[in-house]
Design a protein around this nucleic acid. Structure first.
Length: 150
DNA sequence: GCCAACGTTGGC
DNA sequence: GCCAACGTTGGC
């Protein structure tokens, strides 16, 4: 099983929003690398760190999981959506997503500040310079280590 | 195929 | 609000 970290701005869609809704299609990803992770590497049941970005206290807010196989992001076909892509067609969809579902709460938010302090996490993708990807792989070792921080 | 210009991300 | 870093676009 692979592990992931997915960023979301809590003002737009927070971990508690996911908990309320149970499952959410991860629409709106418009970056090829992030898309490829969802299309090629994610498997139903993979565990996800749900990360809050661009907010007062950035950090990992909870655990989610991949809840579907990959399928075309419907917002790319929707002219009224801010994610509409005129170059995408039903025959040739450009943007692929998976459903993400609530898995479990963490005892507390694990802050970015905290993660940065851990020597064991110095290689973590999230902490590398200039990382802007909204979906990142997390190694099993990193995943287990971070769980123990709570 | 190169690269300058521009837009976006996200921590601070 | 600032700005570093990076992705995308489009002219050539």
């Amino acid at each position: 099983m692979k592990h992931w970290l997915m960023k979301s701005e809590p003002d737009v869609f927070s971990f508690s929003d996911l908990k309320k809704k149970k499952t959410e299609p991860w629409s709106g990803v418009r970056n090829y690398q992030a898309r490829n992770f969802m299309r090629d590497d994610m498997k139903k049941g993979d565990l996800i760190f749900f990360y809050h970005s661009s907010c007062e206290i950035p950090g990992i807010a909870g655990i989610a999981k991949v809840a579907s196989a990959p399928y075309p992001d419907p917002t790319q076909f929707d002219k009224k959506s801010e994610y509409f892509d005129p170059k995408a067609t039903k025959e040739n969809p450009r943007w692929i997503l998976v459903d993400v579902s609530f898995e479990k709460d963490l005892p507390r938010v694990i802050t970015l500040e905290e993660l940065k302090k851990e020597k064991e996490l110095s290689e973590m993708r999230l902490l590398q310079r200039g990382n802007r990807l909204s979906i990142l792989p997390v190694t099993s070792q990193e995943f287990e280590f971070i769980l123990k921080l709570t």
